[in-house]
Simulated scan of single mutants.
Amino acid sequence: MTDLVKAIFRKRANRFIVEAELDGEIVRAHLPNTGRCKELLVDGATVYLKPSDNPNRKTKYSLYLVENNGALVAMFSQQANSIVFDAIKEGKIKELLGYSILESEKTIGNSRIDIYLANEDSSNDGSKVIDETYVEVKSVTLIKDGVAQFPDAPTERGRKHLEELISLKKEGIRAVVFFLIEHPNGNSFRPNWENDPKFSQTLNKAYAEGVEILVYKTENTLESIELVGNSLDFSLEK
């Protein structure tokens, strides 16, 4: 990401568009994050924009990083899937080692789960898929007193993903919800009961049903965003 340009955040025009000051000029940039991000996107904050070479785009830039309390925060929430996918591929996540099949996205029911893992058993006459695991990834940027919280805005879609994981687990299939903290100041995790009690209740239900919860964080620089360390602690209490 060496092509990032430094700018000053000015305002959020709508859900997907922000305005920033670049070299004294106001430019519009795509915001690849549907969260509220109110504590991050404040007037005067330093942001880093990625230029686009697509002449058909409505905006010339995308907002990738924002400085907050001395840390670089990753704002491209969809990129969390590929970060976790690459980390699994590179063997960085000990809880998800030992799979021969690794796929991004798998449709189950009415939802697409982010990552699919499995092994192939060829010991019998015909090979068959075994040890299936579905992993749903959530990008987390909201930090309160060092504790990462999700979501920062109500998410019916996120709640439905949890219900799908619960259904999979009831069928005897391993299911994981993976919270990737993309704000370096977050050192543990809890659901955001205040902003979305329904999601928080469903996360508790999922955990009680045997859906696994993994919490990791990223190390962010202007050159790369990478998953680091081991799984962090979490609490499901209010």
Rank of each mutant, 00 (worst) to 15 (best):
S82N: 08
L214V: 11
S224K: 10
S231G: 11
G229W: 02
Q79K: 07
V73T: 07
L117V: 03
A175R: 06
D43W: 09
G98R: 03
R28S: 11
E67V: 02
C37W: 00
F16N: 07
I173V: 15
E136I: 08
S231D: 12
E103T: 06
L232D: 07
I108V: 15
I181M: 11
T202W: 01
E164Y: 02
A87W: 02
K238S: 06
V177K: 12
D86T: 08
V84A: 02
N81G: 01
P154C: 14
V215H: 08
S127Q: 06
F179Y: 15
N54A: 05
T218A: 06
A175T: 10
G146R: 10
I88K: 03
A118H: 04
D196G: 10
L102T: 03
V211A: 12
V211M: 09
S188C: 13
N124T: 14
L49I: 02
A118P: 07
K94S: 14
K238P: 01
R57W: 08
T34Y: 06
E105L: 01
G158D: 12
F150L: 13
R174K: 15
A71E: 14
E21R: 12
V84W: 02
T202F: 00
A13Y: 10
C37A: 14
A153L: 14
D3Q: 11
D23T: 06
R57T: 09
L31D: 03
L72G: 01
Y207E: 14
F178Q: 10
L49T: 00
R10T: 15
N192A: 14
